[in-house]
Design a protein around this nucleic acid. Sequence first.
DNA 1: CTCAGCTATTAAGCGTTGCTATGTACCGGT
DNA 2: ACCGGTACATAGCAACGCTTAATAGCTGAG
Lengths: 109, 109
Amino acid sequence: MGKQVTEMLKGTLEGIVLAILSGRSAYGYEITAWLRDQGFSDIAEGTVYALLVRVERRGLVDVEKVPSEKGPPRKVYSLNAQGREYLEEFWRNWSFLAERLEQLREGGN
Amino acid sequence: MGKQVTEMLKGTLEGIVLAILSGRSAYGYEITAWLRDQGFSDIAEGTVYALLVRVERRGLVDVEKVPSEKGPPRKVYSLNAQGREYLEEFWRNWSFLAERLEQLREGGN
DNA sequence: CTCAGCTATTAAGCGTTGCTATGTACCGGT
DNA sequence: ACCGGTACATAGCAACGCTTAATAGCTGAG
């Protein structure tokens, strides 16, 4: 996808995944597929799983193991209270960044 | 400034600096000061200088050493043709990311 | 004169992140 | 028996921003 995007995703991918989980519970494989659908064409599977492990370890999500009809059991993640707080902070920070960049884009040319 | 912002800056700070240089030439110390003015309250000096070294090594900027009235000589950077191309790519990628996030923010709640 | 403080740059070492690559495992269709 | 789709995990790598410290020139206060 290009190194630029890879670097930009650092920090924001986490927010993206948490934002997805704020709407509905989901499991890793599902999230990866959804991201690819949305145009993040080559998000690595491992990336999403590692990210989910991290947010779980930080207590931002709850996990439930659910058997699957077609494959190994799914780990279904859902955003908890702490995660929602963290997500709000993410949106605030994102807004800040997006505003600065918008200003730069307009004024810069 | 918070770890979230630190991580978000990875990849975007480079774009921010290049965007600044697309408007006018500038040197490291000046850029750092400007960023802090704009609300990036605790951007580390070392971060900006390291970034400038990187973009220079990639041939995105031209450098000119200019004596300063109050201190050691300044390294004044300006965006060259290749840098402008790279910056345009940055804006395309940024737009893509910003659009996805805006969608998530609206739909997610 | 000395020393603090502002200007200005450089560099080594660290933690976090996303990517690559690989491995495990369960299932249905051929 | 085998392959492909589903589903998760992890070790090693590269890039980035931060911390910290060093170097160096200039000015004004004491």
